[in-house]
């Protein structure tokens, strides 16, 4: 078994514009994903929107610089994640395909293998 991170990217404005009915369907799809994946879900959260992010970095001289906003300022933002345990890429792809963000044209799910440290 190996671990994979599912990174859910999309247009936050489109997520915010969902009607209550769309929101319910969306949440139900995440519920269905969680049930299908069962114990293979090691964790996962929906993130607050990118404008609420704070980025901390060094200035190269040992001082900290704290800035408002995400590290990458893009139209498509990271909206949430799941940490999954799966046998291989085919299995995790099959699970990821259950996520509603895969169906909407403004969003997608990036699958990243997690480094195995033994």
């Amino acid at each position: 078994m190996a671990k994979y991170m599912l990174l859910i990217y999309g247009d936050a404005a489109r997520w915010d514009a969902m009607t209550p009915a769309e929101r319910n369907a969306h949440d139900a799809a995440h519920q269905a994903f969680s049930e299908a994946a069962g114990a293979r879900v090691l964790g996962g959260e929906e993130l607050e929107s990118a404008p609420t992010a704070t980025t901390v970095r060094g200035d190269g001289a040992g001082e900290l610089i704290t800035t408002d906003g995400p590290f990458l300022d893009t139209k498509e933002a990271l909206g949430g994640f799941y940490l999954i345990e799966a046998a291989d890429l085919d299995e995790v792809t099959r699970l990821a395909a259950l996520l509603p963000e895969v169906r909407a044209e403004h969003s997608a799910v990036e699958i990243r293998p997690v480094v195995f440290h033994g």
Binding site: A2, A87, D88, L89, D90, T93, R94, I111, P113
Partner: peptide, 12 residues
Amino acid sequence: ARIPYRVPSADQ
């Protein structure tokens, strides 16, 4: 990424 060495299952 563990792309499996396998013939895919019917659904894929």
